[in-house]
Design a protein around this nucleic acid. Structure first.
Length: 271
DNA sequence: CCGGACGCCTGTCGGC
DNA sequence: TGCCGACAGGCGTCCG
């Protein structure tokens, strides 16, 4: 589920329910996530007020009246706001109970997610501090990609998935945006020209934004069970389409592992 | 600094 | 049907 559009959709879904509320209790059933949930977290967050919620890359940041929470959904995480008396199911690892009898519940079967409390400003946290540009922000453009890639030999696909360069571009959207821009995923990033990076940056913005717009349709039933359409609802041109004909030229879509991740591309449209 | 490999987990699917 | 390996939407860390 969680690529940037899903995290943004999650943020928009939970923020109205949580902003300004007071945390009554944190109940952790499974501490072992990507990093262990800090031992003192229950004590630290009890009684705190949630001031703001925002997204940085794929991290959700909750600023409290003392300290803050840093949440990442990893590969399989999801967050829901629901009545606290609904019994947790398998993989529901923690509840953040808020006023009004409801809670924010984290489910994460693979436990690659993150739930950390920190007393320091969230932007100073080691996991946040070195993150690169927001792809939907004004400072992200082709010139930034061009400048950051000079002298690099890493494949362009790995390059745009590097969170120190630009955040939030996961495997699906890396594949899709490279197809849209007509760039071969394996091309050395230092050998992609300025114009092609401008096209790539535009593709990334467009594809992420349209995915967010589509995710918005599931917002109204966010508090209900399930309801998330997932990425299968998106119009994918190459991802998971190995062996199928290219929608643009009819050539067979190739699948290849690049940087330990499945990559899909059209050998004719992408050079 | 750079590039590549690894490992943290569970669930699912295809092949035998 | 059962077993087994491969693979899955992430990413920090380690090593050369």
């Amino acid at each position: 589920m969680p690529e940037l559009p899903e995290v943004e959709t999650t943020l928009r879904g939970i923020a109205p329910h949580l902003r300004g509320t007071r945390i009554e209790r944190l109940s952790v059933r499974q501490r072992r996530l990507r990093y262990p949930v800090p031992d003192g977290a229950e004590q630290e967050v009890a009684g705190r007020r949630i001031l703001t919620l925002r997204r940085r890359g794929k991290y959700l940041l909750l600023e409290l009246d003392r300290g803050g929470l840093l949440i990442h959904l990893g590969m399989s995480g999801s967050l829901r706001v629901l009545p606290a008396d609904i019994p947790p199911e398998r993989h529901d690892h923690l509840d953040l109970r808020i006023s009004g009898g409801r809670c924010l519940r984290l489910r994460d079967p693979r436990r690659f997610g993150t739930f950390l409390w920190t007393p320091d400003p969230l932007d100073d946290h080691p996991l946040i501090r070195r993150l690169g540009a927001e792809p939907l922000g004004p400072q992200f453009d082709g010139d930034l990609l061009y400048a950051a890639s000079r002298g690099r030999r890493v494949p362009v696909k790995n390059f745009i998935m590097d969170a120190r360069v630009v955040v939030g571009v996961g495997n699906i959207y890396a594949n899709e945006s490279l197809f849209a821009a007509g760039i071969h995923p394996n091309r050395p990033s230092g050998r992609v020209g300025r114009e092609r990076y401008r096209r790539l940056a535009s593709s990334i913005k467009e594809i992420l934004q349209s995915a967010i717009d589509q995710g918005g349709t599931s917002l109204r039933d966010f508090v209900r069970e399930d309801g998330s359409p997932g990425y299968f609802a998106l119009a994918l041109r190459v991802y998971a389409r190995g062996g199928e004909p290219c929608t643009r030229c009819g050539c067979e879509i190739r699948q290849q592992r690049i940087g330990q991740r499945s990559s899909f591309f059209c050998p004719r449209c992408q050079r």
